[in-house]
């Protein structure tokens, strides 16, 4: 098994674990945990291809990861702000209880 294959396998499994969390968890914050894992799996792919793939003089992989990290941080901030606002209305972060449009 080459290092590239190892890292790609790792990132697929981590991605699927994140997907699992998004599907299974009911707490909105823990769903965010799953989303973060999925984003990280994507980043890992970029780094793996940059390191073990064909030569990349334009550093596309690392730069894409930098942008992805910036956007993931923004996504977490907005997501948590929304979750906190919802929590203030309903006193719950359980997504199954948030089924009414009327707050």
């Amino acid at each position: 098994m080459t290092p590239l294959a190892l890292l790609l396998t790792l990132s697929s499994v981590v991605f699927v674990l994140g997907l699992f969390a998004v599907l299974v968890r009911r707490n909105a914050i823990l769903i965010l945990v799953g989303i973060e894992l999925m984003l990280n799996a994507g980043n890992l792919n970029f780094i793996a291809f940059w390191r073990y793939g064909p030569p990349d003089p334009e550093l596309t992989g690392p730069i894409f990861v930098l942008f992805a990290i910036a956007i993931a941080a923004a996504e977490a901030a907005v997501g948590l702000a929304i979750i906190l606002m919802v929590f203030r209305h309903t006193r719950s972060t359980d997504l199954n209880k948030l089924d009414s449009l009327h707050g």
């Binding site: 914050i29 941080a73 977490a76 948590l80 979750i83 906190l84 972060t93 359980d94």
Partner: peptide, 14 residues
């Protein structure tokens, strides 16, 4: 990110 998540868990106390 992890600190934010942990912090909002502290606030919401699931």
């Amino acid at each position: 990110v992890a600190v934010l998540i942990v912090f909002s868990l502290l606030i919401t106390r699931p």
